[in-house]
Nucleic acid binder design. Structure first.
Lengths: 331, 331
DNA sequence: GAAATTAGCGACAACGTTGTCAGGGCGATC
DNA sequence: GATCGCCCTGACAACGTTGTCGCTAATTTC
């Protein structure tokens, strides 16, 4: 900028005015400055600008999710990005890998970077460490799971009801022996989905045997192993409800391996690409990930504009998409 | 920081020293400062720090890809993130949606943010606009496609050879009438994959009819329409080679719809989740997206450390994974 | 015991930008 | 012809840090 000012023969401030399109610069001067800037290939330094500017905005928001490569979260990312782009705001994303310590570290790192706001899919069991940040007015929106211990805006699915609906669908097709395969049981989403399963089973007066329930499947492979084990019992389930997209995929693998894909029913939480092309096609309880991203970002910007507005929890609808695997009847 | 200094009764510089763990502060003082910082919930301002620091590093790198929600690119993102995290560097990602104007805009935006380096999957047909940035020493690594018009490090697949191998696989299984469905023909990747198709056909002296070749499928749906049209001809192809993951999915849909999934062979470029669970399972020419992300990030950091090193193009291997759809023989 | 070294700390300037305010020029008004 | 007001423009300080250097007091060295 100094160089531009020198080349155009004007003061720093005038260059600043031209760059920011402020009123009050004669056309002639503005043209001269613009020419000089182009000639020197000048790029304004946004970080310095943000430092000096009153509002302290960095034009950056943070997004912390379980894994940016997971279809569900990458779709959320996309949704967030779309809203942010309209406002010229950049998105920094990172993966937490269900590691609570990492969550705290990355939140700290984002705070140091002064991101203007944070969209967080919490993985730690308690977000008490956020208390100070929130009190200081740092805008935070939680997605997928709610925070515990602090009060933030959040965008969630009614996991319990959605899960109960999925299980009820299986019950309605005549199943009584229904298994549940879930992820890390410390996560609230996980617990809610399990609770929904229990709810549905209870309201149908269906018995739940311990070996029909598996918690803690971390990925597709672990889910497959769990499903294989579950299906090895003499009184094995005639239907399975799986708590998450990767788990559903693992379960499909297990059913295939055992040649049971057309005999054991399956309903999965979360939709995924190609679910409709599998044989049988997979019935799922679907969340609209991109819409979640949109909404979360909108809420974040609304809170940034007005930090004092009361926090709210938005429950986005989920819907059951029957495709075949969930409509298999018990033999 | 001022407040911390005041509370601890020391100078700003001392606080700075403690925060950065510089030597030369007595234990007692350091403890006092640390306590004060905690009490005030102080977070260092990284942007100010970077501004002042000599090296002008923001601890941020940019990643520009076609779509962060596309499995191929989100896996790359993940790979980049893993390398960046080790160094305490954050990743800003954005989607270009194959829009050249957007590419220029976002590159400019990232330049203004002073990201320390850029990983770019080019979508514009010419990156001449980058000349100045590169000359000024801005580290850039290109992935997926090479830049044209400027000289950068790049990480690419040998699209032409890989594509030829895929088509040769079909030829080896007795096919002569092989179709090609590709994406936007302006993209270099696209052209190379098409060229590979032509190469393989030519070296087998197989005829290529114009209506067996479709360019410009932008998404899964368009690919499906193209495949349906292609398969409607009297001399329709007995096998199809598809140029990208979304296109493969659309083609699968078309084959299903026509009841040809087990009669028309299919080999796709790019692997995707569940490809092995489809019926038939889909034979693909697979790139290791995460490895591409790793390598690109490593190269970027190497260039950041030594801007003068000569640029190089790294060709990552791709491999053909036979799964069933590519081994169907013509009737 | 004096000189030299070292450890510990602070004052000040600077990074690249913008907000504030003051000043110069010029036409309009009385 | 003096005064007022307006339009441009520039000087300066400030944003939150850290690099440089200088100062004091304690420790070591001869």
């Amino acid at each position: 900028m100094k160089d531009v000012a020198a080349l155009a023969g004007v003061s720093l401030k005038t260059v600043s005015r031209v760059v920011n399109r402020e009123a009050g610069v004669s056309e002639e001067l503005a043209a001269r400055v613009t020419r000089a800037a182009e000639q020197l290939d000048y790029r304004p330094n946004l970080t310095a600008s943000n430092l000096r500017r009153g509002d302290q905005r960095t034009g950056t928001i943070g997004l912390l999710v379980e894994d940016v490569a997971n279809e569900f979260f990458s779709s959320i990312h996309r949704g967030v990005e779309e809203v942010a782009r309209q406002r010229g705001v950049a998105v920094i994303a990172a993966s937490l890998d269900r590691d609570p310590a990492l969550e705290r570290d990355l939140v700290g790192a984002f705070a140091s970077r002064r991101v203007d706001g944070l969209i967080l899919a919490p993985t730690a069991s308690d977000q008490g460490y956020l208390t100070n940040e929130i009190r200081s007015g740092w805008p935070i929106v939680c997605i997928d799971r709610q925070t515990t211990g602090v009060d933030t805006d959040s965008v969630v699915t009614d996991n319990r009801a959605a899960s109960a609906a999925g299980v009820a669908h299986l019950l309605a097709h005549g199943h009584r022996r229904i298994g549940f395969i879930g992820g890390r049981s410390k996560l609230a989403t996980e617990q809610d989905r399990h609770a929904g399963y229990i709810d549905a089973m209870a309201s149908a007066a269906a018995v739940v045997r311990p070996h029909w329930v598996h918690h803690g499947a971390q990925d597709s492979d672990e889910a497959m192993v769990a499903a294989l084990a579950m299906l090895a019992w003499a009184d094995s389930p005639t239907a399975i409800f799986s708590g998450q997209n990767l788990i559903t995929m693992g379960t499909v693998r297990a059913l295939r391996e055992l040649g049971l894909a057309h005999r054991v029913a399956l309903v999965g939480f979360d939709d995924f690409a190609l679910a409709d092309l599998l044989e049988p096609a997979i019935t799922v309880v679907a969340q609209d990930a991109r819409a979640i991203g949109h909404l979360a970002a909108e809420l974040l910007f609304r809170r940034m504009a007005d930090p004092s507005r009361p926090t709210a929890t938005h429950v986005v609808p989920s819907r059951l998409i029957p495709r075949g695997s969930g409509e298999i009847r018990p033999e």
